[in-house]
Write a protein that binds this DNA or RNA. Structure first.
Lengths: 219, 219
DNA sequence: AAATAAATTTAGATTAACCTTAATTTTTGG
DNA sequence: CCAAAAATTAAGGTTAATCTAAATTTATTT
């Protein structure tokens, strides 16, 4: 069984491994808010437990076992975020810290039931995909609203910008996660977007706004 | 800020302080599953932080500050238990361990919202009262079904017995938490109880069964 | 290709929460 | 009431996760 700290290190390595290059000690120390010396200690431990491939001075990468662990933690984190936003009315920019704690609760059954309760969501309130119980990432056909093909109906999955000002503006427009949107037309001059929200309201939003809304086409 | 372990000690002291006598080191070590020596160490620490009154060899009691802390932890534990049973379909005998973890999540707002989501429950699935946000225990007018006055309608609040056999039997009878019950008559011979469940089904249960069901009269 | 800079690891301490063994205090029963 | 038993505390040690300072390795740059 992993400690919370070990889980956090593994998760950090996972998030830093975007392009499959090895992850450097300094990069980890930065996101973990510790010293490189502390990271060195932990890397030795994680290597002994074979969660990572580690050669001194050469950076690390996750083993299969390590990646599985990381994906489970990510899954838990994102499921809890969905819970907090959908059931407890949190805004999507308030949930990260709480989910950081909840992601360490140990109970397979709990996560299974939570997933069920939430109706098996495939993405979290930031639009990031949620790995399934086997650790497989769903392939989300997600695009920015600014890139959505004309007349194709889509569902709002998340936002890239999380400032209160932006959230409040969207609120006023009636655009939230789960809303349906369809681009009716684009203004050539400034790329602003004319769209229909929830099959009713027609409105115009700027290109800047559209660039910060993640949507997923509805088949 | 308290560590999880400190919170657990304070909670243990709270639960052991039923009759306001001081709590002994050995009693704590037993419920905490540690050695008396470890408890001694911790008591010194908690006393330094003024969560407890502590005189060497004389046992401890919670200060006002300590009691407030304990009640908050108990509140969180019981609210999470309600969540697990009512929303995630756990049985009331499966939730304790998970709630032991969840009770340490730090976020006032989270608990406020959870309480709201659950509709401000006043007791947990075991029938135990849930302190409010100020740390006040609600006075539950709770009696055993075996003691319920005849023809008074009441709501099932919890069970004292948690064995699967008992749960399954109640399930078959259609008696769960939240059911309404009314005692129609009592058999003098063996004190078995004739009752109406949810204003419909009439049935007879033994005194032994009735003694393990907690109910609260409906005004 | 050496020398300097940057990154990383090692060494040695610290703190929290434990433990075991030994000393001390309190309780209790003959 | 006082000696043995029980409870408690003290002393000294361990492990996980941190730290600082020093040593070592790798990278960069003249």
């Amino acid at each position: 069984m992993l400690t919370n700290t070990e889980e956090n290190y593994i998760k950090a390595i996972y998030h830093l491994s975007v392009d499959n290059k090895t992850v450097r000690t300094n990069a980890i120390s930065e996101v973990m808010n510790t010293t490189p010396a502390s990271v060195s200690d932990m890397l030795k431990k994680l290597s002994d437990k074979s969660y990572i491939h580690y050669e001194k001075y050469q950076g690390v990468s996750l083993t299969k076992k390590g990646k599985t662990e990381a994906l489970q933690v990510v899954r838990k984190h994102r499921l809890w975020e969905v819970f907090l936003v959908e059931k407890l009315q949190f805004n999507w920019d308030e949930v990260h810290e709480i989910a950081e704690q909840l992601e360490h609760i140990q109970s397979k059954l709990l996560i299974e039931r939570l997933d069920n309760f939430l109706d098996h969501p495939t993405s979290d309130p930031h639009g990031d995909p949620i790995p399934n119980a086997k650790g497989e990432m769903p392939v989300l056909r997600q695009v920015l609203l600014s890139e959505l093909e004309i007349t194709i109906k889509a569902k709002v999955m998340g936002m890239k910008e999380h400032s209160p000002a932006f959230l409040q503006y969207l609120d006023k427009l009636g655009i939230t996660i789960g809303s349906s949107v369809k681009v009716m037309d684009r203004v050539v001059f400034d790329a602003s977007v004319e769209l229909k929200v929830n099959d009713k309201k027609t409105m115009v939003v700027s290109h800047e706004v559209a660039k910060n809304i993640l949507v997923s086409p509805i088949d």
